[in-house]
Design a protein around this nucleic acid. Structure first.
Length: 201
DNA sequence: CAAACGATTTTCT
DNA sequence: GAAAATCGTTTGG
């Protein structure tokens, strides 16, 4: 079933980041449907989190969507090349978000291979936030899009990830955040092949 | 208006 | 293992 809007309003962004593991993202663009099961997430805990773009209650044209009510997408361009897909959570004016870092391909693998210019299915197809977004066809123009809509949606397929299967670790690429870079805000499914292998593991 | 810089990935050595 | 690719956002003049 599609996750209801209320799912995203939880004020505990860490709980949502854990809960999203095992859920399924389905995108439909240009009549092409692709889906992945989420295997890795990172929480960005709003104004008090130095690693968050919204740290210190900073509102700009780019971060504004993080201040929207939970249940929409926040997509932004990183290093001029990569589109990073986040799930906005919590009530309006509380800029919490969960970065989706990796997933396990389910449907539309042929479309994902085309988008990534790859010939065969390997973990690199959808492991890593930039790679995952590219495979699903998510780009910055989708920022602000509802996660209950026709183009992007997140579903509970009944897959249950037990706490024992969830590993908590430090976030990746946020060394600039000082002490907040050490927070265990990254979660992934233990033993899953489709988890990012970027430096920092 | 100009300049610096990333919540990364790929490729080359 | 190291470095390049590449551009919107943010910040400073």
């Amino acid at each position: 079933m599609v996750l209801p809007r209320s799912y995203y309003l939880n004020d505990d962004v860490l709980a949502i980041a854990r809960s999203l593991l095992g859920k399924v993202i389905i995108t439909t663009f240009d009549g092409k449907t692709t889906s992945v099961m989420i295997t890795e997430t990172e929480a960005y805990a709003g104004v008090a989190d130095r690693a968050s773009h919204a740290y210190g209650n900073r509102r700009t044209a780019r971060t504004e969507v993080m201040f929207a009510e939970g249940g929409v997408a926040y997509v932004y361009l990183c290093y001029g090349i990569h589109h990073l897909f986040n799930v906005v959570t919590n009530a309006a004016d509380i800029p919490h978000a969960v970065l989706i870092r990796a997933g396990e391909p389910l449907e539309g693998i042929d479309h994902m291979l085309l988008r990534r210019k790859k010939a065969t299915l390997t973990p690199t197809l959808t492991s890593g936030p930039g790679a995952l977004s590219a495979a699903l066809g998510i780009r910055t123009i989708h920022t602000g899009v509802s996660l209950n809509g026709d183009s992007i949606s997140i579903h509970d397929m009944g897959t249950n990830i037990s706490p024992a299967q969830i590993v908590a670790a430090t976030r990746i690429g946020v060394a600039y955040a000082g002490a907040d870079a050490l927070l265990p805000y990254r979660f992934y499914i233990a033993g899953n092949r489709f988890v990012s292998k970027a430096k920092g593991l």
